[in-house]
Design a binder for these strands. Structure first.
Lengths: 111, 111
DNA sequence: CCTTAATAAGTAGGCGAGCTACACATACCG
DNA sequence: CGGTATGTGTAGCTCGCCTACTTATTAAGG
């Protein structure tokens, strides 16, 4: 999958990954890898800044913990984040509907 | 719809619009507007450079004509463009499958 | 003991697709 | 003659994501 296709959908992916369970950054990357069947392999340089951006935006909150001597910053959705996720899901649905309409478009559509 | 969501899908839209009919740039923009119910309103600064890029890549070819005193550059798909369109449609399908999987993901999936 | 790999978090800098804001030209309508 | 619609095009910027790197701890292998 070409990497720039993600543009504008990264927030949705991160919020969705945190929906229902709190994870730290590294685990989020692994969850996305597994949840996508290996198609999504986001570099840390993409995920960590995105998480901090989401935190600044108030969509997630984080807490530090130490597990096995290693420090983890665990993220969870805020209420605003939950709302943002719903909005992202709606936007995604609208987006795919529009593109599907054009890509499937008119001509040979009835069948 | 946020504009950067288009990233990486513009070529697919343009190729799909030219699938089965040849159009000039301005008409492509209008066709996309109507075909998307107004959701897509691409500026000329996006479409014209993209068309030239597609032509350089050999995916479309163009011919000048004059209609009512105005010059038009009419584009049509090449065979390579048709193949590229098929590839784009496949890539789109894969892309949506992956994102849908994450966004719909696991937890509450088995309704 | 030392090296390597895995886990974990982070930043600096760059790239590049698409957008903004123009410029240019003709036709048509009032 | 001025404004709007049609039609094509470019220069330059923005900003989200990626590349490449740094730091640190633990566990395993030799």
């Amino acid at each position: 999958m070409k990497p720039d296709a993600l543009r504008g959908h990264l927030d949705a992916l991160l919020l969705a990954t945190l929906d229902g369970e709190q994870l730290h950054g590294y685990a989020i990357i692994e969850a996305l890898q597994q949840g996508s069947g290996g198609a999504l392999d986001l570099p840390t340089g993409t995920v960590y800044p995105a998480l901090r951006r989401l935190e600044r935006a108030g969509h997630v909150s984080s807490d530090w913990s130490t597990v096995g001597g290693r420090k983890r910053r665990t993220y969870k959705l805020t209420q605003a984040g939950q709302r943002a996720l719903n909005a992202e899901r709606d936007a995604w649905r609208e987006f795919t509907t529009v593109i599907d309409g054009v890509l499937g478009g008119g001509k040979w559509a009835q069948s």
